[in-house]
Amino acid sequence: MEGMSTIVKKVTQLMVGPVFLYGIYIILHGHLTPGGGFAGGAIIAGAFILLLLAFGNNVINLKKEVAGSSNTESIAILIVVVMALMSLLFGAKVFFFNFLPKGEPGELLSAGMIPLYNIFIGIEVAGAILTIFLSLVIFKEESSK
């Protein structure tokens, strides 16, 4: 997969940082504002996809990356399920029970478990979308050979 022109590369270099940061902002404020894990994760995956499209990469590196993103995704979703199962041990002992202290509404550190769920779901969504994209790209590269 080939990269694009210098202009695109330069603009991408400038843009990727803010896009990535915006994704993290959306994930971290998931319990306060609209957005959250899925939206933020999709934005982060978008940043990665932008980089890949602008700079290109060869198939071997892409295959390493797809293994990495797939593993990240699996680990994140496992952590989410394990966190939900941990609720069976603490507090009211109910699945998905929010057993951490709730804090002040409107603060960044509040709402108990929800920010944690958001963070890991964000990682999972970013990994999943990147995996889908990379698999399709690898498939195209291999069949065009």
Binding site: S70, N71, S74, I77, L78, V81, A84, L85, F95, F96
Partner: peptide, 21 residues
């Protein structure tokens, strides 16, 4: 009662463990 959510959680965990390991 506690067993009920496990019907969904256990196969989910095994699915992703299998992908991972």
């Amino acid at each position: 009662d506690t067993l009920i959510p496990l019907f969904v959680a256990i196969p989910l965990i095994s699915a992703f463990l299998i992908i991972l390991l």
